[in-house]
Amino acid sequence: MRETVSQLSILEETSGLASMVAQSEAASAYRYWKNELESDSEAQSLIKRFQYMKEQFEEVQRFGKYHPDYAAVNKSVREMKRDLDFHSTISAFKKAEKELDKLLIECSQIIAESVSPSIKVPTGNPFLDSKSCSGGCGSGGSCGCG
């Protein structure tokens, strides 16, 4: 019975944390910019064109620099990526997405460290993963993850 009460308490705390995150400025900004991005026809057109160019690039990549269209497709993909990065709605959405991701990572790290300092929380950023093992644990324990 004591275990059930403890589990129920953990579920209540988790629900409260989820609610706080959902009501945060970062989550609100993310939802706002996601909606703006989905309703921005110019941004959607750029995204679709980029996806098409990315498919072309992947096809050319199979043959590498020996493909006759390699240079042209490679240049087009880079230009398209730059256009995406400088589009105001897309860049605002990406910024909001990074802020929410940062908040979620911070929450995960606090939770993990409260359980045990040896729990690893992947951040997707090798510079922030100071405690993580980048060698797939094939380094004989020299990575410090063991």
Score class of each variant (00 low, 15 high):
1 M>D: 13
2 R>Y: 11
2 R>Q: 13
6 S>Y: 00
6 S>L: 08
8 L>F: 08
10 I>Q: 14
11 L>C: 11
11 L>N: 14
13 E>W: 09
14 T>S: 14
14 T>C: 13
15 S>C: 10
15 S>V: 07
16 G>M: 02
18 A>W: 03
19 S>N: 12
19 S>F: 01
19 S>T: 06
20 M>L: 15
20 M>N: 11
20 M>K: 12
21 V>N: 05
21 V>K: 01
21 V>R: 03
22 A>P: 02
22 A>T: 09
24 S>Y: 00
25 E>V: 06
25 E>N: 13
26 A>N: 00
27 A>T: 03
28 S>H: 10
31 R>T: 10
32 Y>R: 10
32 Y>C: 12
33 W>Q: 04
34 K>D: 09
37 L>H: 07
38 E>A: 12
38 E>P: 11
38 E>C: 10
39 S>K: 13
40 D>N: 15
41 S>W: 11
42 E>R: 14
43 A>S: 09
43 A>E: 08
46 L>F: 06
47 I>D: 06
49 R>W: 04
49 R>C: 00
51 Q>W: 03
52 Y>P: 09
53 M>D: 03
54 K>I: 01
54 K>Q: 04
55 E>G: 14
57 F>A: 05
57 F>I: 03
58 E>M: 04
58 E>K: 15
62 R>M: 09
65 K>G: 10
68 P>A: 04
73 V>P: 02
73 V>F: 00
74 N>M: 05
75 K>P: 02
79 E>H: 10
79 E>Q: 10
80 M>A: 13
82 R>H: 10
84 L>N: 05
87 H>T: 03
87 H>C: 00
87 H>K: 06
87 H>N: 07
90 I>L: 02
91 S>T: 07
92 A>Q: 03
92 A>H: 03
93 F>A: 06
96 A>N: 04
96 A>H: 02
103 L>V: 10
104 L>I: 13
104 L>T: 08
104 L>S: 06
106 E>F: 04
107 C>V: 01
107 C>Q: 12
107 C>P: 07
109 Q>L: 07
109 Q>W: 08
110 I>T: 14
110 I>Y: 07
110 I>Q: 15
111 I>G: 01
111 I>Q: 09
113 E>G: 05
114 S>N: 15
115 V>E: 05
118 S>R: 15
119 I>Y: 12
119 I>E: 08
119 I>Q: 09
120 K>S: 07
120 K>H: 14
122 P>M: 07
123 T>Q: 05
123 T>D: 02
126 P>R: 13
127 F>H: 05
128 L>Q: 05
130 S>W: 11
131 K>P: 00
132 S>G: 14
132 S>A: 14
134 S>C: 10
134 S>G: 15
135 G>P: 03
139 S>V: 12
140 G>M: 09
146 G>I: 05
